[in-house]
């Protein structure tokens, strides 16, 4: 049976977000947008076509994934940690009929919602600048965005559960997020990497998100969809399950 206890938790976060929507949106969008436009135009002029298209077009799909990852990660690290550890919002909710599963599912759903928004914003730029081949195929980015958001929200909640303070998040960014951005195929095709490094990239979930997103922007159907989608789903599910167990140990013992 599906429990709907997560809905009021989601609504609580949404109500806070509504109050800060404009600065929050700017923060979410400005960074990936600048990467895409700055590198796409600036560096793109110096480069030959990449994978048969102008560099900006190539970069677009990677930017969607990068933006979604960032958004889900920041939400489940800094924002969720504030609610759990600093404001003790989770403790307050746990005194009501809702349980930890409701709280964490609400947080997960909210992080996915926010990352969907971030992904949609980049998609809107792609549409506006005409960086795509087939409009219909770009709609396929929606499930990719949701899946990528789910994956990184699940992983982020694990780090949230383990973290003693905000400084701890830096390890995750240095050891996981940055390698993903630089090796996951956002800025160049992973096939350009030496074999051993590509072996590393194959284990990174962002690589699989990009593998799904890029063909959709460039007007092709992605290959091995069940495999790439399965990797994202597996990371997300395993992360969420682990996060639930770790958080239970942290808060309810």
């Amino acid at each position: 049976m599906l429990r709907l206890g997560f809905v009021p938790v989601w609504r609580r976060n949404f109500l806070v977000w509504k109050k800060l929507a404009i600065p929050s949106l700017l923060g979410n969008l400005a960074d990936p947008m600048l990467y895409m436009l700055g590198l796409g135009y600036g560096l793109g002029r110096l480069l030959p076509d990449v994978a048969g298209v102008p560099y900006l077009n190539f970069l677009a799909a990677g930017t969607v994934c990068y933006s979604v990852m960032n958004s889900a990660t920041f939400e489940t690290l800094y924002s969720a940690f504030s609610r759990m550890h600093v404001q003790k919002t989770w403790d307050a909710i746990l005194n009501t009929p809702l349980g930890l599963g409701d709280v964490m599912l609400g947080e997960l759903a909210f992080a996915v919602s926010k990352s969907l928004l971030s992904g949609l914003a980049i998609l809107a730029v792609i549409w506006a600048l005409g960086l795509y081949e087939s409009f219909a195929l770009t709609l396929g980015l929606l499930p990719v965005i949701l899946l990528t958001g789910f994956c990184f929200a699940g992983l982020g909640l694990v780090i949230n559960a383990l973290s003693p303070n905000y400084d701890f998040f830096l390890y995750y960014f240095t050891l996981a997020i940055t390698p993903m951005v630089l090796l996951g195929g956002v800025f160049y095709p992973v096939t350009e990497l030496p074999l051993w490094l590509k072996g590393v990239a194959d284990w990174l979930p962002l690589t699989h998100a990009v593998a799904l997103a890029r063909p959709l922007v460039l007007g092709q159907l992605p290959e091995a969809v069940p495999f790439h989608a399965g990797v994202l789903l597996a990371y997300g599910l395993a992360g969420y399950r682990l996060a639930l167990a770790l958080t239970r140990r942290r808060l309810l013992r």
Binding site: P8, R12, L15, K19, K88, T89, D91, A92
Partner: peptide, 27 residues
């Protein structure tokens, strides 16, 4: 009803919103 030792009211909300949001946790 539970009144916790440490204040964990929602600092982002008004008085009214605190009561509304909390009431929704009870359905």
């Amino acid at each position: 009803g539970v009144v916790p030792q440490a204040d964990n009211l929602d600092p982002d909300f008004t008085v009214r919103e605190n009561l509304q949001v909390y009431g929704r946790y009870f359905g």
